[in-house]
């Protein structure tokens, strides 16, 4: 069997997807997921991370449990998701209706030299999510899927998870603020849980 290479261009895809976010809070995994969201247009409602590999979904889960009236979307990469795979079971067990996860899957460790990732073979993160209690999952392979994906991630009762099969691309650097205390302050003040 020959498998067609992934063709989704991540930067344009994320920018288009985030046009559908409404008031959703976005928590990004370290690396390219953070750069993609910042490149799409900065917002205090974007919670960036520069480290803590494996903790994107746990962080988003904590946020979703603290803000049950807000939609929360975790956007992360396949390597980051694999490191925190067990956290999908915690999400499945807790069942937060307001939580969605998007895995940007280029099947490589892009930040470290494009080494082969676990999802390049038979590993299917969406199938894992379904097996551990997510209410629905989706896999997208087309650039034009953002409207349907946006509806799925921002409106469908959670927890939901989507995998987007993205291409390996060379994108311009787009680095947000990296001081965590500054990021936390602007995020919390935008939520009204901390004084400006």
């Amino acid at each position: 069997m020959t498998v067609a290479p992934n063709k989704i261009a991540r930067r344009a895809f994320i920018a288009e997807l985030l046009r559908h976010r409404g008031e959703a809070l976005i928590a990004t995994g370290l690396g390219s997921a953070t750069w993609d969201c910042f490149a799409a247009g900065d917002s205090p409602e974007f919670l960036y991370s520069w480290g803590g590999m494996g903790l994107a979904v746990p962080t988003a889960l904590g946020l979703a449990l603290a803000q049950p009236d807000r939609r929360v979307l975790a956007i992360t990469g396949d390597g980051e998701m694999m490191m925190g795979l067990g956290s999908l079971a915690v999400v499945g067990d807790q069942g937060p209706k307001n939580l969605a996860v998007l895995v940007l899957d280029n099947e490589t460790f892009g930040e470290t030299g494009r080494q082969r990732g676990l999802t390049a073979g038979r590993v299917d993160i969406a199938a894992v999510a379904m097996a551990v209690g997510f209410s629905d999952v989706m896999t997208v392979t087309e650039q034009g899927a953002t409207a349907a994906l946006g509806h799925f991630l921002f409106a469908r009762p959670g927890p939901v998870l989507a995998v987007a099969k993205i291409a390996i691309t060379e994108d311009p650097w787009a680095l947000p603020e990296k001081d965590g205390a500054t990021l936390a302050h602007r995020f919390r003040t935008s939520l009204g849980v901390e004084k400006a």
């Binding site: 803590g52 904590g62 946020l63 979703a64 449990l65 995020f187």
Partner: peptide, 26 residues
């Protein structure tokens, strides 16, 4: 009080941090 059972303890560090960022103590 909500009890969250983890698969490994490090998840709790992420969840508690996310909770605080959203205004809840864990």
């Amino acid at each position: 009080i909500r009890l969250v059972t983890l698969s490994t303890e490090e998840e709790g560090i992420g969840i508690a941090t996310g909770c605080w960022l959203g205004g809840r103590r864990a």
